[in-house]
Design a protein around this nucleic acid. Structure first.
Lengths: 115, 115
DNA sequence: TTGACATATTGCGGTATCGAAATATGTTTG
DNA sequence: CAAACATATTTCGATACCGCAATATGTCAA
């Protein structure tokens, strides 16, 4: 069965750093393909193809204006990712809390174990 | 150049839903390979291999105990992902604010445009 | 040591994906 | 209509990845 396709799974779509780069460029706002090409060092067909993937998976929206196609973020689609990461925040914080406790414990003891 | 490997790029490593499933199981705490196999419907070699990838990319830690290998989350490694998503929170919220403004504007006008 | 158990590794066939190059499509301007 | 411009699509060869089946490694218990 392999992985879910890049065009159907947001996580997999973001598995390519170039696509993340494109999204990062789009944070500033709507941009044409040419503008994206200029911002990043990628060929036009490469950018167009990554945009196709991002569009199919729902991470960007397309709008036509004359001979330009303007792409913009569809950040709602990042929600699955956001939610997934959020689940782990608790785990991360728990660990940090425990580390904190441990360090404070050490300090309370004031032991000179040399470790 | 293609994509960065699953064993070097956290995003790409998470591009496979099975690996996310394994991590989700590990949220509850440290588990042996067999316990993970029982929790998910995957073969033992499949689980072992995904764990290898997760281990190489730094998302889980391994500990030996007798003939068991116990795996646990290394959630600090999710920070790049967390940070990346966080960048987009502002965009998401801005959009929602703007939608709010728009809806309130409509209501203030009380126009019956039917749109 | 032998056998059972737990996990890891290897080899294989099939598929998805990538980058590059060439070309096609669609749009504006003259 | 023709030429220039902006973007999309197709084709190709190379590679990474997946799942499965078989097997190897390592550990405990008798």
């Amino acid at each position: 069965m392999a992985r879910a396709s890049t065009t159907s799974d947001v996580f997999n779509a973001l598995g390519d750093v170039h696509r993340r780069d494109i999204l990062d460029v789009l944070i500033a706002g709507e941009k044409s393909v040419g503008a994206i090409v200029d911002s990043l060092s990628m060929s036009q067909p490469q950018v167009s193809n990554h945009l196709r993937v991002l569009s199919e998976v729902g991470l960007v929206k397309r709008r036509a204006e004359g001979r330009h196609r303007l792409y913009s973020l569809a950040p709602e689609r990042l929600r699955p990712l956001h939610d997934w990461v959020t689940k782990y925040e608790r785990v991360i914080n728990d660990r940090l809390d425990r580390l904190d406790d441990y360090l404070q414990e050490l300090q309370r003891r004031g032991d000179g174990s040399g470790l």
